[in-house]
Design a protein around this nucleic acid. Structure first.
Length: 217
DNA sequence: ATCCCGAGGG
DNA sequence: CCCTCTGGAT
């Protein structure tokens, strides 16, 4: 019996190979010096460019260098520092309460499991997987808007629910590639496979992509 | 106008 | 499922 792989898995391997060639440097673009810094940077990155997050995090971490200081900080002071990242009231509240919960419930250490990470305020599954993959080297698929859109365009998933997309893609790509695959999909989504007007004409995946020229999924 | 590597609440 | 939270870049 020769081992057979599905058409989707075969496509996924080919696409991953090309993305690796196109984006050899794809990586997390948030600046951080510890798991806690990455966690907070990722919370701040919602609906905000990484560049802007990187402009405020050094100020935030210099003013509040420890979990204790963050948890006792005045929300208004955090808000002023992170203002330009948007959603500043909820993000400030989340950061303060997240610091408090890590102290109370996790012994002052950022937890290393998805189940624990998502108990923190402001931390959803996507943020948790960013931390696991980039601070702890634990493979995770970070299904954001780009990841979901590209997965559907490639025919890897028909789902909208990010958890279902994650499960579909997990079957197609070896676990050890998950973190890098996430970055490469996101880079490609930002550069070429845009939401509104994907540039299929210059896309190196056009020949493999069932949505090429059709666009708009 | 529309998008930026979302999360939480109803 | 929908809505809301938000400023900045283009």
């Amino acid at each position: 019996m020769s081992p057979k792989i599905s058409a989707e898995a075969s496509s996924a391997r080919s696409i991953y190979r090309i993305l690796t060639k196109e984006y050899p440097d794809a990586r997390c673009e948030l600046d951080f010096n510890s798991p806690l810094e990455l966690l907070i940077a990722t919370v701040l990155s919602a609906q905000c460019t990484d560049k802007r997050v990187n402009a405020v995090t050094p100020v935030l971490f210099k003013r509040f260098p420890t979990l204790e200081m963050l948890s006792e900080a005045k929300s208004s002071e955090i808000e002023k520092i992170i203002y330009s990242t948007g959603f500043f009231r909820s993000k400030a509240k989340n950061i303060k309460e997240l610091a408090n919960k890590i102290l109370k419930d996790y012994g002052g250490e950022v937890p290393k499991t998805l189940v624990e990470l998502v108990t923190l305020p402001g931390v959803g599954r996507k943020t948790a997987n960013v931390v696991l993959g980039n601070a702890f080297e634990i493979p995770g698929l970070t299904v954001d808007t780009h990841f979901g859109r590209l997965s559907r365009r490639f025919g890897w998933s028909k789902e909208i629910d990010p958890v279902k997309v994650e499960n579909d893609v997990a079957k197609l790509i070896p676990e050890k590639e998950w973190t890098l695959l996430s970055h490469k999909l996101i880079w490609h989504g930002r550069r070429i496979c845009h939401s509104r007007k994907p540039e299929c004409g210059i896309c190196p995946l056009a020949k493999l992509c069932p949505s090429a020229g059709i666009g708009l999924i």
